[in-house]
């Protein structure tokens, strides 16, 4: 939760793309940790595999989104340089 809120904060308060992206990933990390925490069911029971799978899916989605955002950012920089 703290990661989540920290992520939102720096997402909103930083201008630079790289910082925003790191903030987004921190935020996502916060959400994924909540899922992991939900999966824990005490020391004796095996953890719930469903949230683990959701986190894996979420990470891949976040990686893809970050890649596209970086490419767009690079392109915006190029376009600004040429203008």
């Amino acid at each position: 939760m703290i990661l989540f809120a920290l992520g939102i904060w720096s997402f909103l308060s930083h201008e630079a793309l790289l910082r925003k992206l790191i903030a987004f990933n921190v935020m996502g990390g916060g959400v994924f940790h909540v899922f992991i925490a939900v999966a824990y069911r005490g020391d004796t029971a095996p953890p719930d595999p469903v949230p683990h799978a959701l986190v894996l899916t979420g990470i891949v989605v976040a990686v893809s989104a970050t890649a596209l955002a970086l490419a767009l950012g690079g392109r915006a920089q190029d376009a600004a340089d040429h203008d």
């Binding site: 989540f4 939102i8 916060g30 959400v31 909540v34 939900v38 949230p51």
Partner: peptide, 8 residues
């Protein structure tokens, strides 16, 4: 991501 937190 905010939506996903709600789902969690």
């Amino acid at each position: 991501t905010t939506y996903l937190m709600g789902v969690a």
